[in-house]
Design a protein around this nucleic acid. Structure first.
Lengths: 216, 216
DNA sequence: CTGGTGACCATATTTGTATTCTGGTCACCA
DNA sequence: TGGTGACCAGAATACAAATATGGTCACCAG
């Protein structure tokens, strides 16, 4: 335990150093020597914990995504009504990332460009994990009768897709817009999905459809 | 008219040439000389129709988006039931772009990188125009009683946002996945938005919420 | 004995210089 | 009068030399 704790401390020190340096220099200008110096360790030590510079940077992103997943799990386990959990889940998922990139706007763009293929795979993994947590929240809602959906996993994936355009991957934080605008958009999409557009009073819909199809 | 027709022919010849060259070389390697030669005109002629090389490329993208908007308008004006128009609208909006970039996968990435700020503004314009067309389709549905939404413009914008992550801007066509997968995702999001997740029988919902909130 | 270290090396990157290329202009002309 | 290609300023490329860096590993302090 003490050994494992010390090991985790060193690993986290390295990742903390990476966070600070990415903010200052960006990925390419940041050297492994820089990271070691900033973390107060030797360069060889980095390679005891990470196979490459690239994996160090990915480790930093992994850690942030792990923190996010923990927050999403807490929301799912909370006392909120299921529909409110969904809203809060989607909001947190987007705004956590929005806030995280605030000080890295240009350097994260450069980082994504530099390691795009492997990062794309990682991102899919993060989203899969988030999707499973959301599916759990949807299942909870179905059990208490608030939701009607037959395949929570499929719906969860679609809900994440529906809000992915607001994530700071494709657009930088500047292009995404103001924080409150992003929040409003996420909540707007969440409510639109929860409530739906089609009226549900069956007779009105049938009549409306018949009226629509009647030739003039 | 004959004058305007000839002028439009030259402009379209230039844009057709751009399309062919972008597929082969990408934006940076394609020269203004190349475009002129491919179009069978002199280099000076390009500058009678476009202020710069960059605007030539943007003109090519503009033309594609104009074609898309025409298709979306046709869908809105069709005889389909309003909910089917919505599905078809969103599907066409994504798949038209997906199909358009098939042969330009890497060169379009390079093009977006090269002119990102101005392209971002153009993209917003395209999406605004599409949003207005969709709002019109939503208004039609409300008039015949199929939809319930109070602000078609806001809902239209949210619906486009909900499917923007499937557009080939942030992800290349390869990263987006197979065509049929994209189609299924778009239709899945469309149906999820149209139908909603929350059950609508009011008494069941109230009881479900009360049961949920009741302390054990 | 073991994890941490920094000297070392192969390769990548940067810098400086010379050369070539290209976006954009405009006087000429059919 | 619209189309054109020679022209030019600046951008981009090619190449060589110099410098930097990712990753390795023999050494060593605890």
């Amino acid at each position: 335990m003490r050994q494992a704790t010390l090991e985790k401390d060193i690993r986290d020190s390295i990742l903390d150093a990476v966070g600070r340096l990415l903010g200052h220099y960006g990925y390419k200008k940041m050297t492994v020597d820089d990271i070691a110096h900033e973390a107060g360790i030797g360069k060889g030590t980095i390679y005891l914990y990470f196979p490459s510079k690239e994996e160090v940077a990915l480790g930093w992103i992994d850690r942030a995504n792990k923190e996010l997943l923990e927050q999403l799990n807490l929301i799912t386990a909370s006392d909120l009504p299921p529909d409110e959990r969904i809203r809060r889940f989607l909001l947190t998922r987007v705004m956590f990332r929005f806030d995280s990139v605030q000080q890295f706007a240009q350097s994260l763009d450069e980082l994504y460009v530099a390691m795009r293929p492997i990062f794309h795979a990682r991102r899919n993994r993060y989203h899969d994990a988030e999707s499973q947590v959301l599916a759990h929240a949807l299942a909870q809602g179905r059990v208490v009768g608030i939701f009607h959906c037959e395949d929570e996993n499929a719906v969860a994936r679609l809900m994440l897709l529906a809000t992915n355009s607001l994530l700071p991957y494709s657009l930088s934080a500047g292009e995404l817009g103001q924080r409150d605008e992003i929040e409003a958009k996420v909540l707007g999409i969440a409510d639109m999905i929860l409530n739906g557009l089609l009226r549900r009073d069956t007779s009105a819909c049938v009549i409306a459809r018949i009226v629509h199809e009647k030739p003039e």
